[in-house]
Design a protein around this nucleic acid. Structure first.
Length: 767
DNA sequence: TTAAGATCGC
């Protein structure tokens, strides 16, 4: 962060140097700067213009005055061009051009003849463009230039190319370009041609011209900022290139030190990161441009930082900021906003505050320092609220009110309301709402939703409903978020009826559902095992144009498996396949469990194969389900085979649940030795036995001579802080009946070690 | 002007 802060303080001269105003040049054909013109020449120019106006056009050719002015005064070409313009009409200008062409033939125009004709021709072209029948005039002018070998100036070439294209004669535009002297085919002219070709739907030809410019070394006329503007505007508008091709094109422009304009580049970086999730490519694009010293600005980096921030990739963000510093690209107010926000979201509020304080503290008359705005304040207040630092959040609100142009907003107060709701201080949260009203700030639907959520979490759904009803009376309507919160709350207490009622209420209120509210309902209905209602909601979801997500599919498949509705399960799987959604290990485990219940071990094996083909690995849950199924089918040896398979083939370590299944199975068939040795195995593998483990073992220790083992296990249970439950007590009470035993049971329940004598003639080797 | 940062559903 230090890097970033030093940047915010630095005055940056780089921008001044690249300011377009400082780069602007005088055009080649502009009038010479005033004050250097010899007086005699000036008067020659004035006299020529006066005479041209005075003498009727048909008499120009025979006028001695005109020809002597031309021969004697050596009027420079730009002045002749200026005179042409001042003639004020196309017809006079065109006549003057023809007069000069004749004069050139008869040697009375000798001074810089070619240049004079070119510039005068250009001025005539300028007039022709706004004439009523400009098409014919331009065509005939161009013919004249060709016939009389008048070279076209850059400006004349640009005008002709542009105007022929506007008149629907793009082929004529191309001809003009092709016949140009190679020295006139400069960047400006090529830019116009490329633009014209794009506008006429000839992208292929445009790219050919561009290609010549981009070819490193071979092109004298390199692309500039304008070229990039034309090309990238077209690329964005016409979607003519694929993403990778655009990346390549940016890089080729980059090698000439040219970057796409900031807005365009920012959009492209955003779409790269957002749609394709290719932040690495986005970074390569920016790095490539930086390497070539192409001019870049903060917003393009902000686009990348935003996405990195969302993914909490703080170290990559830091790399970006460091590089910006190296390249003297100043972060702006948004860059700092993104950084502060990301730090807050990852609960590193103190670091966020540090960045913020540096920023505020260093504010002076140096205009380069970034001024904190209300978004920075809101972000920090929210960050503090989210970690429960309410006092500091309130203090920041006070500070905010004293800052210029940092007025507290609804968002500010909503953050505070949220903080008090997280802390369970609902009354204080409501007081904040009163305070905001006093400050003249209206609560909005987010305020409502925050409080409804807080009430659901801390005081139950009924209080939330009552509050919502009150708010509705006050004119504050809920939105889909309000209803989703309440539906979740109803479902979590098993009240699916009310949840469904709320959904209908929402539709009546004219609020349109989104995918999430459907998922909430489907989840509730699946938990309540209401398969028919769930099917109806899925239908509604599809009618509304949404599709199920993997979580919803898994819940539904689970429900239909539970209801033994194989047909529906099949339908869901087909549906998933059509939606190109890949099942995950939860889907497979659900299916494995379904086939296990049916004792269809062949299908179970098939599922395991499918799972591997899909690139998924059986999990501890998969093994647990199958091992349990083999056990309950009485095939303990198959179960044990799979158990051994876990560690060796799949590298999945068995957990307590797996051990319990097997211990239970061995206990049930009376193989206490195996059960006990499994429990020892747990110890070795550092898997903690739980109350179920002990209950299973206690249950099978019902012989009188096994009582010492029982006591030993009881002590072990206490030592490992494994708490007994109701079942434990019931099992033990059955086995410990003598008054002496009952005392021991009492000691055990109180957590004391039970004293006993080791039975000599019967012990398990493992104990 | 465009581009980029803040509050509510799990």
């Amino acid at each position: 962060m230090t890097t970033l802060l030093s940047l915010s303080r630095r005055r940056n001269s780089y921008y001044l140097l690249t300011h377009p105003r400082l780069l602007r040049r005088f055009s080649a054909d502009a009038d010479p700067p005033p004050g250097i013109k010899p007086e005699s020449q000036e008067s020659a120019e004035v006299r020529l213009l006066e005479n041209l106006r005075k003498i009727p056009q048909q008499d120009w050719a025979s006028s001695e005055t005109l020809s002597s002015l031309l021969v004697s005064s050596s009027i420079p070409p730009p002045a002749l061009s200026q005179i042409t313009r001042r003639l004020g009409s196309y017809s006079l200008a065109a006549s003057f051009l023809h007069y000069l062409l004749d004069a050139a033939k008869s040697q009375s125009l000798n001074h810089r003849r070619e240049e004079s004709l070119s510039l005068v021709f250009q001025s005539v072209v300028e007039f022709a463009g706004s004439e009523p029948d400009s098409k014919d005039k331009l065509l005939s002018l161009y013919e004249t230039a060709k016939e009389k070998n008048v070279p076209l100036t850059v400006v004349a070439a640009k005008l002709l190319i542009r105007w022929f294209s506007r008149m629907g004669m793009v082929n004529q535009s191309v001809l003009v370009y092709e016949r140009l002297d190679s020295s006139v085919k400069n960047t400006q002219v090529r830019n116009v041609l490329i633009d014209v070709l794009f506008r006429n739907g000839r992208a292929g030809d445009a790219f050919k011209v561009l290609d010549e410019m981009l070819c490193e070394g071979s092109s004298v006329f390199r692309p500039n900022r304008i070229t990039a503007d034309i090309v990238f505007h077209e690329v964005w508008r016409g979607r003519v290139l694929k993403e990778d091709e655009i990346v390549g094109l940016i890089s080729r422009f980059g090698s000439h030190g040219v970057a796409p304009n900031c807005v365009w580049l920012t959009r492209f970086i955003t779409s790269l990161c957002r749609n394709a999730r290719r932040t690495d490519v986005a970074w390569e694009v920016l790095s490539g441009l930086m390497k070539n010293r192409a001019p870049l600005q903060a917003p393009s980096f902000n686009a990348l930082l935003t996405v990195l921030g969302r993914n909490m990739e703080i170290s990559r963000m830091n790399d970006v900021v460091v590089k910006m510093d190296e390249m003297k690209i100043r972060p702006d107010v948004v860059t700092l906003g993104i950084l502060i926000n990301t730090l807050c979201k990852s609960r590193r509020v103190d670091e966020a505050l540090e960045v913020f304080q540096e920023m505020c503290g260093k504010r002076s008359d140096d205009g380069d320092v970034i001024k904190a705005d209300s978004i920075h304040f809101n972000t920090l207040i929210d960050g503090l609220c989210k970690v429960g630092r309410m006092k500091e959040a309130e203090e920041l609100l006070v500070k905010m009110k004293t800052e210029e142009s940092c007025a507290a907003t609804t968002v500010t107060y909503n953050c505070l309301v949220g903080g008090y709701c997280i802390a369970g201080q609902l009354e204080t949260a409501k007081e904040v709402v009163s305070r905001m009203k006093e400050d003249g700030i209206k609560p909005n639907v987010v305020t409502l939703n925050t409080l409804v959520g807080g009430m659901c979490r801390h005081h139950g759904v009924n209080m939330a409903i009552a509050f919502f009803t009150d708010m509705q009376r006050e004119g504050l309507k809920g939105n889909v978020v309000t209803y989703t919160t309440l539906i979740h709350a109803y479902c979590s207490v098993g009240n699916v009826e009310n949840a469904m009622g709320l959904f209908d209420q929402m539709l009546e209120a004219g609020c349109s559902p989104d995918a999430k509210i459907y998922y909430a309902l489907i989840s509730g209905l699946c938990q309540a095992r209401r398969d028919h209602d769930a099917v109806r909601v899925v239908e509604k979801l599809k009618q509304s144009g949404f599709s199920l997500d993997l979580l919803a599919y898994n819940m539904l498949i689970g429900l239909f498996c539970d209801k033994n509705n194989g047909e529906k399960v099949y339908e869901m799987l087909t549906d998933m396949e059509e939606a190109k959604m890949k099942p995950d290990s939860i889907t497979y485990n659900t299916l494995v469990s379904f086939f296990c219940k049916l004792k269809d071990f062949e299908s179970v094996q098939k599922m395991m194969e499918n799972m591997r083909e899909d690139g998924l690995h059986p999990t501890v849950v998969t093994y647990g389900v199958i091992i349990e199924a083999y056990c309950s089918a009485g095939d303990v040896s198959e179960a044990l085979k799979l158990f051994n398979d876990m560690g060796s083939r799949s590298k999945v370590s068995p957990n307590t649940v797996i051990y319990n299944i097997l211990i239970n199975a061995f206990c049930k068939v009376g193989n206490l030795g195996q059960a006990m040795s499994l429990k020892e195995d747990m110890k070795e593998k550092m898997v903690r036995p739980n109350v179920e483990t002990y209950n299973a073992l206690f249950k099978s220790l019902n012989e009188v001579h096994q009582k010492e083992t029982l006591f030993k296990l009881m002590n072990e249970m206490n030592q490992s802080s494994c708490e007994a439950n109701q079942t434990t007590v019931e099992i033990l009470m059955e086995r410990l009946t003598s008054s002496d035993d009952l005392i021991k049971l009492k000691q055990f329940m109180q957590g004391y070690t039970v004293g006993y004598q080791v039975e000599k003639n019967f012990t398990f080797p493992c104990l």
